[in-house]
Design a protein around this nucleic acid. Structure first.
Lengths: 242, 242
DNA sequence: TAATATGATTTGTCTTACAAATATAAAATA
DNA sequence: TATTTTATATTTGTAAGACAAATCATATTA
């Protein structure tokens, strides 16, 4: 027997209390701003010690679901959708499979945003993008800076006006960077080749589509821009179920 | 002063310990499978009581980052990307703005998946979708069942072969259902009108595009299929930053 | 009335204690 | 000797008590 055996995930009292608290909030239709009973009251009602209750509360506090102020008691608050995710997106902690999934997720999301981008696009956005592109002009592919790459794509997310999407991309960004670095033997040659043949869809190309209002062109450009990612994921066999 | 005043988010010892634990794992390059010191050792090293340490550990346990077995000590494990999110996606707990953001997120993701779907599509997928569509045939729009709606879209997610995307959609699904219900005064008339004019892009239409291998048609069909969502979000002014 | 001081309450933290589980060592048996 | 059984020690899970810090509510004073 080694450590890879299936861990019989023991359900502790804390786990149960956490669930029961969530059920309690839901069943009583409690939402942000509503006060909840104090610790001792909850502990007694649930028949557990204060320490167990506090561990469960601590979990929910981490997610922003509960806010506490000494002596004033506890309130429900609007939780942060992605705060839990934020803590654990750490390439070292995640399997390659998960990292590939995240990369695929990102690519799909970013391409799917095209519609929203064209709905919201205004002159200021264009100007900002032009500035970013100008600052990112390089002679050789190898001179590309990740920072400029980041700025451009972040701006695209920003144009959607969807703060959840923006937060999401900020969290998962390290994954793309990590994978590109870890598998540079795959990406570098491909990108150099594309660059040499003039087939690399640059940020400038994408911006031109935006300026022309060419939605179709933009979308296809984005797909080509992400071409190396697509082929990478396909090759890694992490697109296919079978 | 009311309760809406800005809460001066007090940083507790538990918060700090949580951060320090994460930093410790990262700095020591610890990953899934690696053992970590026992509670008392950690507590002493961090200069805090066992209860504080346990609250912090409990948070990380919730995310799947730490697994514990009595007497055997603690191990790091691959965390679940979305477990934190799963607990708090509860329409009652989230503001409309967040719900709108989630809906927009979903729509973008699902449309962006088209590329992957065509990369992976096989006969079995088509057969499954045909079965779902067949079972979903209705005479009037009002007879549509949410279950069938769910099955179809879930199948699309499944075809991507990306388990993270699938998990994500399963978590955020209640949001679409909730919004469609809450704002039925908006959605029902629109859908009935589209249905009457034969302009509603049905699941059958989408499936036909897939069968024909018509990527462009499929994508446009998806956009139209989500048309009411787009117009809803636009109207709610939750696409625009300004 | 308004400002200040006092007391009470609630969360944050530490400590001690014990139960449950199990790895390790010791003892008993074949 | 090898194997099984028993006993011991260790580690996490849970409970309870104690006190500090913060602050709400009340009483006191200017």
């Amino acid at each position: 027997m080694n450590d890879l055996r299936i861990v019989n995930h023991q359900v502790t009292l804390v786990d149960q209390v956490e669930d029961r608290l969530l059920s309690y909030f839901k069943e009583n239709n409690l939402g942000p701003g509503d006060p909840i009973p104090r610790e001792m009251e909850l502990a007694e009602a649930l028949g557990v010690g204060r320490s167990v209750l506090r561990e469960a509360l601590s979990r929910l506090r981490m997610l922003g679901l509960i806010e506490t102020r000494t002596r004033r008691g506890m309130l429900l608050a609007e939780p942060s959708l992605l705060r839990g995710m934020k803590r654990i997106v750490e390439p070292n902690m995640l399997s390659d499979k998960t990292l590939f999934n995240i990369l695929g997720f990102r690519v799909a999301l970013e391409i799917g945003m095209s519609e929203m981008i064209f709905q919201n696009l205004n002159k200021k956005h264009i100007e900002d993008l032009e500035d970013i592109v100008k600052r990112g002009v390089v002679k050789r592919y190898s001179e590309y800076t990740p920072v400029n790459e980041y700025e451009f794509h972040t701006k695209l997310y920003e144009i959607t006006g969807n703060s959840t999407i923006m937060e999401f991309q900020a969290i998962i960004r390290p994954v793309s960077v990590f994978l590109k670095e870890k598998f540079q033997d795959y990406f570098l040659p491909i990108n150099k080749e594309l660059s040499k043949n003039g087939k690399l869809v640059s940020h400038k190309d994408l911006l031109d589509f935006l300026k022309k209002g060419d939605k179709e062109g933009f979308r296809k450009g984005m797909i080509d821009h992400f071409g190396p990612y697509y082929s990478f994921l396909k090759q890694e066999n992490h697109f296919n179920i079978n």
